[in-house]
């Protein structure tokens, strides 16, 4: 079953800047896909289309087989959870608990159900202890995990994350990765952090100048130096994707479709 399907999506901003010019993408149920691309490639614009914050100018987006449009947008927003890059944009309520409750309350769930969802979501990201703190008293890593919880509380079928590793120190970066790896639901991760993409997503696509220019196992894409260079993507200094295979990079927590990924590689 396809969780998210994007067909021939184009979008130009009111000032004429073309952000997307014919994007095609399909993400299967439970699959984790990285959308890689340099700054200005249209990654965030694509992300905003996925739950109808921007309406498609031509082409379409479908979530669980349902086209995103004015009639379905309310339902789609509860199926696709968007985690924004800056947690300060996402966390606007006075306490963590109130913020995590915001989505479920908008869905009109009864109070007991909301409380259960909040508790479960905070537990998943390991942030139960800070439930009654104000978001601005937390570290960036904690805020990012709380931002993920605000979306998990809505129990979305698809999780979309914008640069989940940006500005995090190495420990916070690993903690966010641990959180994401244990969720086991369809995930689209928009990033230019290539090693993070390799750790978290068996499959990757490269978005460049508003088009998907490559689609395949993350390890293979990252091994293609010419392809990366052509689209302004670079691996961190001294990083060799081939070596990560031997040290068991992320292997202690296998992705649901790890076997499919391995078959593709062979």
């Amino acid at each position: 079953m396809t969780a998210v399907e994007v067909r021939d999506l184009t979008y130009a901003y009111p000032d004429g800047t073309v952000a997307l010019q014919g994007v095609d993408l399909a993400v299967a149920d439970g699959e984790r896909v990285a959308v890689l691309g340099p700054n200005g490639a249209g990654k965030t614009t694509l992300m905003l289309h996925l739950n109808g914050l921007i309406e498609a100018q031509s082409g379409w987006v479908a979530v669980n087989g349902r086209r995103v449009g004015p009639a379905t947008v309310a339902a789609v927003r509860h199926e696709v959870g968007l985690v924004f890059q800056d947690p300060d944009d996402q966390l606007f309520m006075p306490t963590v608990r109130a913020d995590v409750a915001f989505g479920p309350m908008n869905a009109g769930l009864p109070e007991s159900e909301v409380a259960a969802r909040v508790a479960a979501a905070l537990d998943l990201v390991g942030m139960t202890d800070v439930a009654d703190r104000a978001p601005h008293h937390l570290s960036l890593g904690q805020r990012r995990r709380v931002a993920i919880a605000t979306v998990l509380a809505m129990d979305p079928a698809v999780l979309v994350l914008d640069e989940p590793s940006s500005n995090l120190d190495p420990a916070a970066r690993r903690e966010v990765a641990d959180t994401l790896l244990q969720l086991g639901r369809s995930t689209i991760m928009v990033t230019h952090d290539l090693s993070y993409a390799l750790q978290l997503c068996p499959r990757a696509v490269i978005l460049s100048e508003g088009r998907i220019v490559a689609d395949g196992p993350t390890r293979e894409l990252l091994a293609d130096a010419a392809l990366l260079a052509e689209h302004r993507l670079e691996l961190p200094y001294g990083f060799d994707p081939a070596l990560t295979d031997r040290v068991g990079f992320g292997a202690n927590r296998p992705a649901p479709d790890e076997s499919a990924d391995q078959q593709r590689r062979q």
Binding site: R77, G81, L82, D88, A101, F102, G103
Partner: peptide
């Protein structure tokens, strides 16, 4: 601009113009 981004993030969690009452 931050206000606009906050609004987008609220919309994406189903905001319809009313703040749910705090319990």
């Amino acid at each position: 601009e931050r206000g606009e981004r906050v609004h987008l993030a609220m919309l994406s969690r189903g905001y319809t113009g009313r703040l749910p009452a705090a319990g």
